[in-house]
Every structure is written in C-alpha cells, then in structure tokens.
Computed example of a mutant assay.
Amino acid sequence: MRVLHAVTLHSPSHAFGGPVRVALNLAKGLRGLGHEARLLALGEGFPDPWPTSVEGVPAKLFPARRLLPLGFSGMTSPALLASAGRLVRDADVVHVHLARDLVTLPVALAALRAGKPLVLQTHGMVDPSEKLLAKVLDAVAVRRLLRGADAVLYLTPHEREGLDAVVGGALPGAVRLVNGTPAQEERPAPAGPPRILYSARLQARKRPVDFVDAAPAILAAHPDAEFVVAGPDEGELAAVRARIAELGLGGCFTVPGALSASEVLTELRRAHVYVLPSVDEPFPMSVLEALSVGVPSVVTHSNGLARDIAAAGAGRAVPPGAADVAQAVLSLLDPTENAAAGASARRLAADSFSMEAVLGTLLPIYEKALR
C-alpha cells in the first residue's frame, strides 16, 4: 500500500511540533510492515542539499514561502501546490494531518478531486473559531473536506465535539485514534542531582513560565536540583529568560533551544521528572515519549493524557499553576515514588500507546477507505 502523509512543515528545529512526530511515527511503522509510506511537507531551515528522507522515511520537502503574517497558516509553496495533484495520484491512500493552512488544505482538496481515499487527522488543530480567516476557510474548504473524507481521526471526545461543531452536526466517518510512540530503551536509574525537564514549544498555551515559577519551591527541598527548558521559541523564550533572571536562578537552568529527536531522548534518559504545564493540550507526543522511556510526568487536568497518567500511577495530573506543579514534582522526587511511577509509565506506553496498537487501528481504516 502506498500512503502519502501530508503535514504542514518540517524543520531542523521541529517548529511544527507533534503533528510531524505523529506523521513520522506512523510512516515508519507502516514501512516496517512492508508498506510504502512517504512524507510531504514544506521545509524550512535546512542547509543544502535538502534532505530527501526524514528518519528513514522518503520525504518531498518544498521550500516554505511566507505569504501572510499568520504564522504557519500564512506559509505555502507554489511548487507544492502545482505538484499536489500528481503527488496524490501516485498514492493509494492520502493521509493529511489537517490544519487551517495553505499546505494541508490544498493537498486534501486535490485528493478529494482525484477520488483518492482520504484520511484526515486534525490533532486538535481544527476547532470552532471566531477568527475571520478560520470562518472563511471553513466555508470554502474545511467543512467540505471533513464531510467528504473517508475517515476523520480524532484524539479525544473534546476534539470530536469541536469537529462536530465545525461541520454543524454529527461528523461522518469519525474514528478515534490515539497517538502512539515507538518502544524506547528504558532510562537508567536516576542518579545525581534531581533533573527536571520541560521539552516542548515555548508557546503561551504550554505555560513554560509556570515551569520556571515552580522551581523555587522545588529548590527549597532540593537545593541542587537542575532544570532544563528545551524547545523552539514560539513567543515565550524572552519571558522564560526574564523570569529565570528575576528569580536569580540562572545557575539552576539550562535553556538549550530546539532539540533533535535523538537529543530529546537523551535528555529524557537523564531526567528524574518530565513536566508539561500546558492547558487544553490534546495528546502531547512529548509526554508519550517521556512515558516510553520511563520518566514520570506531571501534566495538568486538561491534558488529554491526564486521566491515563493518573489512573496508571505514571505521574501526576494537577490543576494548572506553579504551586501544584511544584508539589507534584516534589512527590515524584521521592526515590520510591519515582521508581514506581517510572515503571508504571513504561507499562502505560507499551500497553496503551504502542505503535503496534495504533497501526492495528489505522490499517483497517485504510483498507475500508480503499474498498
């Protein structure tokens, strides 16, 4: 089976975050089962020559052009748009990681026009919005695509409700598909000073400043604790650095910027606790990766993984805010608690979020679309 995965942007800094990681994990898993899976995306920030594969997945990357000052939504490539029809015709199934942008919408529309089996996965990026551009795109393309796709994959009941609201009724072809993560080598037993990690985009919704504000309470109990704030900047880096300076904690924090996939895993294997203090987070890949390595994780109640983590004892789910984050981290720095939560994290990742389980759900969806 030839499967084309289309996503908005791939870059060395992993600026587009989770959807690219999901697309790559699915494509690698499909290729491991003997299918031909490829990646289609805009590219940005690569030195010449540009890559023709990403982590072993054949990739067609088109140089990004920023047409409008709208972040990822304002990026496109005339060459990609001109090639979309040919690229979808070469696939048996077109799997689009859909956002309201000038990449995934045109590719999905090209697949619909060509009569190709079309699977959409929205990652929480298509939800009810009062923004004028969102309303225009919904009227022109999004509703048509959601209704016309062979399947629409959603992560959580909340996301499903949002998609129903966008189309104005019960969404046809909706199927729940959780994110998965490949099996990873277990971290060694934590040693040395406590090391607490944040590794995600530095974006307001993800609340990296809450991570910084949690540090003083942790340091009161563990004066030698070390903190890492990693990830590409999406507007919060200056606030993070300013807050570290205000608290006089420059010697306790490392801010390395964006990390590669292998560098993220290296940091996770050094971490005692992983923290993602974001709100309304659909299903974060960074937390899944932490669980797969056996790192206990702290998330807020509105995180799509909060109930699973709490039920499994794989970390803590807390109200948003620095005080609750700090208390959760402190509880997980107890060596006995940390070891038990780490083992539970590994079991949770293997039992509920393995790539085998995810592909076992996805392949029948593809086969139904082909029929």
Score class of each variant (00 low, 15 high):
Ala314Gly: 11
Val273Thr: 03
Asn179Val: 02
Leu330Val: 07
Gln203Asp: 13
Gly250Thr: 06
Asp351Thr: 10
Val358Lys: 05
Met125Ile: 11
His97Lys: 13
His123Thr: 07
Thr104Ser: 09
Pro19Met: 11
Glu36Ala: 09
Leu359Ala: 03
Thr361Asp: 10
Arg144Asn: 13
Ala214Tyr: 00
Phe46Thr: 08
Ala357Asn: 11
Ala271Glu: 01
Val358Ala: 01
Leu70Tyr: 05
Gly313Ala: 15
Leu30Ala: 03
Val166Gly: 08
Glu236Ser: 05
Arg346Val: 12
Phe283Glu: 00
Leu288Gly: 01
Arg195Gln: 14
Ala215Gly: 04
Glu226Arg: 15
Val136Ser: 12
Ala225Leu: 11
Val273Lys: 01
His123Glu: 06
Pro284Asp: 12
Glu246His: 09
Pro106Thr: 10
Phe62Gly: 01
Gly313Val: 04
Leu259Pro: 14
Leu42Cys: 08
Leu81Thr: 07
Ala99Leu: 08
Met355Ser: 11
Asp351Phe: 07
Asp150His: 11
Ala357Val: 04
His97Ala: 10
Pro172Ala: 06
Thr254Phe: 06
Leu288Asp: 01
Ser73Trp: 00
Val228Lys: 00
Asp92Arg: 03
Gly231Thr: 11
Ser286Lys: 04
Ala258Val: 09
Gly43Pro: 13
Leu105His: 03
Leu265Asn: 09
Met75Pro: 00
Ala271Thr: 02
Leu80Ser: 10
Ser331Ile: 03
Glu246Gln: 15
Ala340Asn: 07
Arg89Phe: 04
His222Pro: 12
Gly169Pro: 13
Arg241Cys: 11
Leu177Ser: 02
